[in-house]
């Protein structure tokens, strides 16, 4: 990790050597969700994925001058993320890692291969969310409210944990199937 020229005063003109230009910032901003999802498939935990994203962002910013405009920002930042995931796994190794290195590398490779399809699925998801029954939509929104998880939702609603897990699982599966169907349908019509 190289030191950025942080003691220089930041000016709005944004000379390319000193600070990233507007295009870089835009690419960076737009890539955040994709990058987060890419990391999540490899660490399985949203909190950890956010932390790794944060570490990745630090590196991205310190190395912005190495990025060449016109090349794929996602490919470039994905490599940085992969390295950060590796560091995270090293750190966690003595604790508990759910999955093996082989698993992670296979999944990461497929994630890149599948990234267009996944992007389409994300678009379809908002439509599928709209189609949910009102009750179901409320439950899934409660589940994904910041800081929430199935357990806390169950406690708040005063329902047995298992039944809330089952409901949330059912809704997620409904969404998953809905997205899959929509994608198959679009594939046929185009």
């Amino acid at each position: 990790m190289s030191e950025p020229q942080s003691n220089e005063p930041v000016d709005d003109s944004g000379s390319l050597d000193q600070v990233p230009n507007a295009e870089f910032v835009q690419l960076f901003t737009k890539s955040q969700r994709r990058l987060f999802l890419f990391i999540l498939t490899q660490v399985n935990n949203t909190t950890d994925a956010e932390e790794i994203l944060q570490d990745t962002n630090v590196i991205i910013w310190s190395k912005f001058h190495q990025f060449q405009l016109g090349t794929s920002f996602f490919a470039w930042s994905g490599k940085i993320a992969t390295y950060e995931i590796l560091k995270y796994r090293e750190k966690k190794r003595a604790g508990r890692l759910l999955f093996s290195d082989e698993f992670i590398s296979r999944v990461a490779a497929d994630a890149i291969e599948m990234s267009d399809e996944l992007e389409k699925r994300r678009e379809a998801l908002s439509e599928c969310l709209r189609l949910l029954k009102a009750d179901d939509r409320e439950l899934i929104q409660a589940r994904y409210a910041p800081g929430e998880n199935g357990l806390k939702v169950a406690e708040r609603l005063g329902r047995p944990t298992n039944s809330v897990y089952q409901s949330i699982g059912r809704i997620r599966k409904v969404l998953f199937d809905c997205v899959t169907r929509r994608l198959t349908a679009t594939a046929r019509t185009t």
Binding site: T29, K30, Q32, R33, F36, L37, L40, T41, N44, T46, A49, R106, V107, D110, A111, M114, E117, L118, R121, R122, L125, S126, I140, Q141, Y144, A145, P146, R172, L175, F176, V179, T180
Partner: peptide
Amino acid sequence: ARQAYLAYLDLHGTLHWNTAFGDDGA
């Protein structure tokens, strides 16, 4: 199964991300 794994976690993450940060990261 691998694709299902990726798509499922992607769905989970998208739901998480969107409620926290809005639909498209904008």
